[in-house]
Design a protein around this nucleic acid. Sequence first.
DNA 1: AAAAAACGTAGACAAATGTCTATAAAAGTG
DNA 2: CACTTTTATAGACATTTGTCTACGTTTTTT
Lengths: 193, 193
Amino acid sequence: MHPLFNYINRYASSLMSEKEFEGFRSHFSEKKIKKKQYLLQEGEICKYFAFIVKGAMRKYYIDEKGVEHIVNLYIENWWAGDRESFVMFTPSIYHIDAWEDCEVLLITRESILELCHQFPAFNELLLKLDERNNIATQRRITSSISFTAEKRYADFVDCHPYFLRRFPQHIIASYLGITKDTLSRVRKKALKK
Amino acid sequence: MHPLFNYINRYASSLMSEKEFEGFRSHFSEKKIKKKQYLLQEGEICKYFAFIVKGAMRKYYIDEKGVEHIVNLYIENWWAGDRESFVMFTPSIYHIDAWEDCEVLLITRESILELCHQFPAFNELLLKLDERNNIATQRRITSSISFTAEKRYADFVDCHPYFLRRFPQHIIASYLGITKDTLSRVRKKALKK
DNA sequence: AAAAAACGTAGACAAATGTCTATAAAAGTG
DNA sequence: CACTTTTATAGACATTTGTCTACGTTTTTT
């Protein structure tokens, strides 16, 4: 069955039939995004959220010095996009690009609102995701203001082992708010324990 | 008029009548929390969210060394609580206490769910808050992983000037993930510009 | 298979930030 | 008012983290 179909029925309390899913799916457009290509670039308005069927993506911010700071990592069954830009129609400060060749399903804001109306299960799903996301970002903030680099990395390994296999260390370092050199040192130290 | 009444009608698209508000309000219990008293302590399950009618509160995490790390600051018209504990019924890792004498309105999870059902305007309000919160935390994460202490403070002054008047510097420093000494240095540097 | 790019680690040094102690002013308390 | 507590700053020093350069390995591309 289609990954999105499984995904929705795994989260929602009321199931969606295969028949219903056909209409549902028609609001999404399929797209392949090859490695290094953009889903969103700085300055653009985020018109689509992307459900990742296959592949891996990253969202990052580029500072005045030209340094990339990884803000989010995404793999299969995650939603990629810039919520602020998507909702407020403001230019995004982020770039989102494919780290691996990707297959995604794109959906507009209008379609989301329509589908939420038409399929309460989808509405419910998005609310749950929002709640989860709120909880996860709260944890990440707590971690980033109060833990050492060492502890932040240990936590990351615990919570997101699947990212370790998909992204190289310098990307993970950036996600944690440290440089690749520091991460390398932290790992060396951790080995001795 | 009651602050909560104003608050709801300011956010919602459909207005709530004063009559409706009476029934609505009955789900909340009023409480006064004096300075330094707890709304929530580490290890407890967060049974109530608090709408702050008057006063200022802080949420913080205490690390192994006994150091407080300020995770959130709240003033009038904000909601204080630990979402993770509130939703998942797990013991909280946070403390929430009153920084100034407070008047709050407490509400349980069950009451929220009931009110959401009964008053679509309230449901809509909470969704909007969630959305806002998601956007704000995303920004805070971006700031904390990619900006210097100096830029983070400058951003804070821009975005939350009302906090500056309510909380001392060591609290704000902690919120920014730095020590009071570092904040003092940062401010000194900023003055010269 | 050869060449190029990406990756991880290392070491030397610099910069930022934390730690600690001290001090003085300001605010709160009885 | 006198006393205590809180707050902000300062300086000396330690620690962490960043910066830069280099090197060898792995991976990707041609």
